[in-house]
Computed example of a mutant assay.
Amino acid sequence: MLSNAPPLRSVGRDPDATILPRSTWPATLAPIAQLLDHGLDLGPVTVFVGDNGVGKSTLVEAIAGAYGMGPEGGSTGSRHTTRKSESTLADHLRLNRGLGAGRGGFFLRAETMHGFFTYLEHNPGGKDPVFHERSHGESFLDLVVARSRYPGLWILDEPESALSFTGSLALLSILRDIVEARGSQVILSTHSPILASIPGAVIYEVGPWGYRPCVWKDLDLVRDWRSFLEEPERYYRQLL
């Protein structure tokens, strides 16, 4: 009988690991320090939004690494790597797993997908299409669909970089199906107000203060996009 528990309930500092000095990156980032001090509760869908450089990707990368996924993307146990650039944060985290939940998962990272697609071509393991023969956005959606039949933990880092408006809506629909119909859990880092609007998500706004829960309509991301779309000329005047 399958468990209804999510793969992850929370994540925090591993008390048995060596202490990561707060003067050492990435503990110098406020969200990472907050994670180590207070931990982080996760829902069936957890979304992180915030500006560039605040620590969103570092945070989700470390959760993926602690779960056993390769830092450049792939399934649990993936060893695909081209250049080591990830932090050591994963080594300092303890995961509170759901009782009886499966341990499978997949990490989709926008900035490393070209190399991952090449890795899949050289190491075929199923009936995947040749992703390099598809457009950037099509290959992203194809990969999610191909892997969505396997329930588990899905971690996605800024997937909107490959997607148009309609592509983002398509991914939103796929992610809803992954959670509602297939019993998976999603952790998403995004700059997209479309993807951040996934129903039922726990949304954390990430910034120099750390991370804090926020409802979609009150996100700076949403307010800024709405303001720009209503009057782009005002932003042009400020730039010029």
Rank of each mutant, 00 (worst) to 15 (best):
H132V: 12
D41S: 12
N4F: 15
S192A: 09
T88E: 13
P15Y: 01
F117N: 12
V49S: 13
P208W: 06
G167L: 07
E160M: 08
A66V: 09
V54K: 02
K56V: 12
G210M: 08
I63S: 00
S173Q: 13
S197H: 07
L120G: 00
A90V: 15
P129F: 09
S135A: 08
F131I: 05
V144M: 11
G53V: 14
T24I: 08
L42A: 06
T118W: 11
D14T: 13
G50R: 01
Y211A: 01
F228Q: 02
R176Q: 09
V222R: 01
R149V: 07
S161C: 02
G98M: 05
L42W: 01
Y235P: 06
E72D: 11
S192C: 07
S164A: 00
L172T: 08
Y204C: 11
E133G: 05
R13T: 03
D218I: 08
R9E: 05
Y211P: 00
V222W: 02
R226H: 11
Q34T: 03
A5N: 15
L59A: 06
T18M: 15
P124W: 00
Y204V: 09
Y119Q: 05
A90R: 14
W25P: 09
Y67Q: 07
R83K: 08
V222Y: 04
E133I: 09
R97T: 02
P199L: 10
F48M: 05
